[in-house]
Design a binder for these strands. Structure first.
Lengths: 238, 238
DNA sequence: CGATCGCAACGAACACTGTTCGCCACGAAC
DNA sequence: GTTCGTGGCGAACAGTGTTCGTTGCGATCG
């Protein structure tokens, strides 16, 4: 390579790194080359640097993907809720989110991994929850329905993402790291409840009001709810 | 390590390798150590051999995972359909599948990747389709509902799998391989239609009858259908 | 004005991964 | 008893995420 002399000239106006720059570079790579191409090395190369430099702004690849996910969801416009038209608005919102996600093939999978807790997602959930409550659902049903919608969005985005872009399957990490990751995940799950109960009621009024309901119910109860919704929905189809 | 002498004695009755043995070993590893631990090396070690030996029976890791998935689904018992009780039977079937999948944390993600086409899944879809048709749904609605159920099963299994077992996120493969994989995937998608149209009507009566409907409709139409089902289902909740 | 300090950036390395190539040795056939 | 085919596998390749220790730049202090 050329010597490091005149480095200022060889890299004319290299923008200083930042979390936003890293996330933006990640989204650029994702859109053009698919999720498997979003490696730390590839994103770093996009920023004309080495992989180690990214770790100053992003804890790991997982966090980078979640930041990217939240950035995309943040682009979805949430119109003020009109209680009378809650069905139409809910359908439109979900459609918009799915469309936004499918523009970045593979992001759906990231959202499926664990319930997202970024600010954009919280805002989205709050909006959806408001619409569901406006529709007359009980708080418990609205909370579970919100969960169901989140899952559905992720699943649809995942599936269409596979068709539209490169495929995904790989795994990473060692067995020991994995155990640590599982522990961290549990810890994170624990803080999800805390984060829900500690929400600012001014910013997320509905979410804060349904914090208890959102984390209520066993896995089986939630599963049964989902199945009931689907079957009832089938019967009500035109 | 000890020399290779007396290898017959040090490996008393080493069962000959076979596809079933590989799949079984994979499931053993998956149940005990999670999806990220299901590496070719780990599965090979479980069989007391090297990773290269697996490729005689399995094309690659992806195919191994799908064989494992189908093997698990094959354990789900499908009771003969009673048209009058189609709702209960449908709910029970879906519940059983989800429970079977959640015993192997991470398999849900495999099923989400692309619509599974193993024999056990086909049998399951056929059964579900029969129940939906018995419920009076049109062929088109039944087909899409079947798709929706498949997605829901995968998504639920994925989400609960994350909580129950080790976490998942990694990616693998190079950019060039990826493009090739995407092409292969498209080809595979193409053959899915062919496979559906070429189904044995005696073995999969309902599936064969709805082959056209199963692959009909744009992505947006399917998305709208899913949203409509969910919203109608919410309203019909108790 | 010159020296010093802090910290972002990074080159190199580690421990993994999936997958392939080519050799080796064992069992069967002649 | 010799030869042949084939299944099994050791070693290697090209990647991956992540970390460690150094480097070099910019701002602050004497």
């Amino acid at each position: 390579m050329t010597p490091a002399r005149r480095s200022t000239r060889s890299r004319p106006a290299k923008a200083p790194l930042s979390e936003e720059a890293v996330v933006a570079a990640g989204l650029r790579v994702l859109r053009q080359e698919g999720l498997t191409a979003v490696t730390m090395r590839r994103v770093a190369a996009e920023l004309d640097t080495g992989p180690a430099s990214l770790y100053v702004y992003v804890a790991n690849r997982d966090e980078l993907l979640h930041q990217m996910l939240d950035a995309v969801v943040a682009t979805v416009r949430l119109e003020p809720a009109d209680p009378a038209r809650w069905r139409e608005e809910l359908a439109a919102t979900v459609t918009r989110v799915v469309h936004a996600l499918t523009e970045y093939p593979g992001l759906g999978r990231v959202s499926l991994g664990h319930i997202p807790t970024g600010p954009a997602w919280l805002e989205l959930f709050d909006h959806v929850l408001g619409l569901l409550l406006a529709g007359g659902l009980s708080r418990q049903n609205a909370a579970w329905a919100c969960d169901l919608i989140a899952m559905h969005i992720g699943a649809v985005a995942f599936e269409t993402g596979v068709g539209a872009g490169p495929a995904e399957t790989g795994g990473s990490g060692a067995a020991q790291d994995e155990l640590q990751a599982a522990l961290d995940r549990r810890h994170e799950n624990a803080t999800i409840e805390d984060r829900l109960t500690g929400l600012d009621p001014a910013r997320y009024p509905y979410l804060a009001g349904c914090a208890a309901e959102l984390s209520a119910g066993s896995a089986d109860a939630r599963l049964a709810f989902g199945i009931r919704v689907l079957i009832n929905g089938f019967s009500a189809a035109p």
